[in-house]
Simulated scan of single mutants.
Amino acid sequence: MVDEAVLKNAIETAWTVYRARHSDVDAQDSRRCLLERHLHSRSEARRSDTEELAGFGIAYLQRLAGDES
Rank of each mutant, 00 (worst) to 15 (best):
F56S: 09
D29P: 07
K8C: 02
E44S: 09
V2G: 02
E44M: 12
V25A: 03
R32H: 14
G57Q: 02
R47F: 11
S23M: 09
R63I: 08
L53E: 06
S48R: 13
S69A: 09
R37I: 05
G66L: 09
G57H: 02
R37Y: 10
K8M: 06
S48I: 00
D3W: 02
S69G: 05
S41Q: 15
V6F: 04
D3I: 03
N9V: 00
S41N: 14
R46M: 07
E44T: 09
A59N: 13
D67T: 08
R19H: 07
L39S: 04
A59H: 11
C33E: 12
E12K: 10
A45N: 09
K8E: 10
D26W: 07
G55F: 12
T16M: 04
M1S: 10
I11S: 00
N9D: 14
A27W: 07
A20T: 11
D26R: 12
A10N: 01
S43L: 06
R32D: 04
L7W: 00
E36Q: 07
H40E: 14
E36S: 02
L7A: 02
A65Y: 04
R46Y: 09
E12N: 14
L64Q: 05
V2P: 05
H40I: 05
A5R: 10
I58M: 03
V6H: 02
S43N: 07
L53M: 08
A10F: 00
I58E: 05
R63S: 07
V25P: 05
I11E: 02
K8Y: 05
W15A: 00
E36N: 04
L7N: 01
E52A: 14
D49G: 15
L7F: 01
R37M: 10
A5V: 12
A65E: 06
S41W: 11
A59R: 15
S69M: 08
G55Q: 15
T50I: 08
W15R: 00
K8F: 04
D29I: 07
R63F: 06
L35Y: 03
A54D: 03
S30A: 15
G55A: 15
L39P: 06
R31T: 00
H38N: 11
A65D: 06
Q28I: 06
R46H: 10
M1W: 03
Y60L: 05
V25K: 04
